[in-house]
Computed example of a mutant assay.
Amino acid sequence: MGELKKWVTSSRAAQRALLAAKTALAVGLSWILAPYMPGVVDEYPYYAPLGALVSMYPTFMGSVRSGLQTLVGLLFGIMLATGVLLLGTPNIITISVAVGLGVLLAGLPRLGAGREYVPVATLLVLIIGGQNAETFSVGYGVQMALGVVVGLAVNVTIFPPLTLDTAREEISRGRNALMTQLRDAAKALVEEWPPEHEDWASRQHDLDVVIGEIRRAVDAAGESHRANPRAYRRSRHQFVAQTYEDLAVLERITYYIRDLSEVLAAAIWDGPLNLQLKADLREPLSICLTATAEVLRAWEEDAAMAGILDSADDSLAALNAAVSTAAESDASAATSGAAVALDVQRILTALRHRLLPKDDPDQPV
Rank of each mutant, 00 (worst) to 15 (best):
I32R: 03
G141H: 10
H197F: 05
D310S: 02
G112E: 06
G212I: 08
M79L: 15
T163A: 15
R110L: 12
N228C: 06
L342M: 06
R297D: 14
N176P: 04
M37Q: 10
S11H: 11
R175C: 05
V118A: 11
E294M: 12
V344W: 06
A265H: 04
D184Q: 12
S30A: 15
S137G: 13
T94V: 02
P357I: 08
A306S: 12
P361V: 13
A298C: 07
N274P: 04
L80I: 10
G100Q: 03
A341G: 07
V365F: 03
A167E: 03
L18K: 14
R236S: 13
L108P: 09
R258S: 14
A167W: 00
A333M: 03
T349R: 13
G222L: 01
L146T: 11
S96E: 04
G271C: 05
A318C: 08
V41L: 01
D360C: 02
E196Q: 05
D343L: 03
L264P: 00
A17P: 00
G271N: 12
G107Q: 14
H237S: 09
S63I: 07
D362S: 02
L19V: 14
R258V: 11
T163P: 02
D280F: 01
A298Q: 09
L80Y: 06
L355S: 07
E191V: 07
L86D: 15
L108G: 11
A321S: 14
D206G: 06
A334M: 00
S261R: 07
L25M: 08
L296N: 01
A304E: 15
R110M: 07
Q131K: 15
L126D: 13
V295I: 09
A267S: 15
Q363S: 02
D362Y: 03
T89A: 14
S172P: 01
V125D: 09
E191F: 02
L85I: 10
P90G: 03
S315Y: 05
A298K: 06
M179Y: 09
S235K: 13
R12A: 12
G51H: 04
G212S: 07
E134N: 13
D330V: 11
E196C: 01
H205Y: 04
A221P: 05
V118E: 09
S30L: 02
A241S: 08
I128D: 12
L87H: 13
S11I: 04
A24N: 01
A248S: 15
L80C: 10
T180Q: 09
L273Y: 09
L80H: 05
V190Q: 14
S311R: 09
G67K: 08
I158F: 14
A322H: 04
L207V: 03
